[in-house]
Design a protein around this nucleic acid. Structure first.
Lengths: 115, 115
DNA sequence: CGGTATCCCGAGAGATACTG
DNA sequence: CAGTATCTCTCGGGATACCG
């Protein structure tokens, strides 16, 4: 997903592509969902999303920060603590997330996806 | 995204994970969006989504088929033609897609994402 | 037309060690 | 605590060639 799709539909899909750029980071959804519960510190996120390794977690957080979906606040405590929270834009994305969850719940896991 | 997240939130995130399994296939969104305009044949899809190569196109279509999002119909013409269309489940996913597009449009491309 | 088979490659994820 | 650095390795994607 370099920039966007070339071709007749270039315009139409640019928005989808911009969403995909975020999804590109495999764990972005989970992190957004996790932060939707409220601000969390790095360690807390790391614990709650045990599958996501340190490196990936930082990477995705950086990406989301760059895209103004996540806000990063440093508190000069000792030792320092860093709090991650959703921006307005980030919180707004939850609508989409909810919509997808609803969809997933409604249709359940694909019955045939196993075989 | 093997199966789903282990940990305290395993239950909560299984739905998100099931969505991610679909998104996993990089081009799934675009294909769903494309098919939302109506059934299309392989070649047509291939043309309209020029960025998606043959192999990827087949792969994603297979995945979407397995997940009952896309229906594949073979017509025994000469030469044969194959038509892909969205299932009810697939069409239902458009709600999410639309929601994400709305979000993308509302917030535009991240102003800082460039630098 | 509508694919499958194959090879190659690079991005990204996992694991581990180390730093301010 | 909150990361960075590095290495490895797998998986998915690009490209090309071939098949029913």
């Amino acid at each position: 997903m370099e920039d966007h799709v070339q071709g007749p539909n270039e315009q139409r899909y640019s928005h989808i592509c911009s969403v995909l750029q975020i999804l590109n980071a495999k764990w972005a959804f989970l992190i957004i969902a996790e932060l939707s519960q409220g601000p969390k510190r790095f360690q807390q996120l790391h614990r709650d999303l045990a599958v996501v390794k340190t490196q990936s977690l930082t990477n995705v957080l950086r990406l989301l920060e760059k895209n103004e979906i996540v806000r990063r606040q440093v508190f000069p405590t000792v030792p320092i603590s860093v709090e991650y929270s959703l921006t307005e834009k980030g919180m707004d994305f939850q609508t989409s997330l909810k919509e997808m969850e609803k969809w997933a719940i409604k249709w359940g896991p694909a019955r045939d996806a196993e075989g």
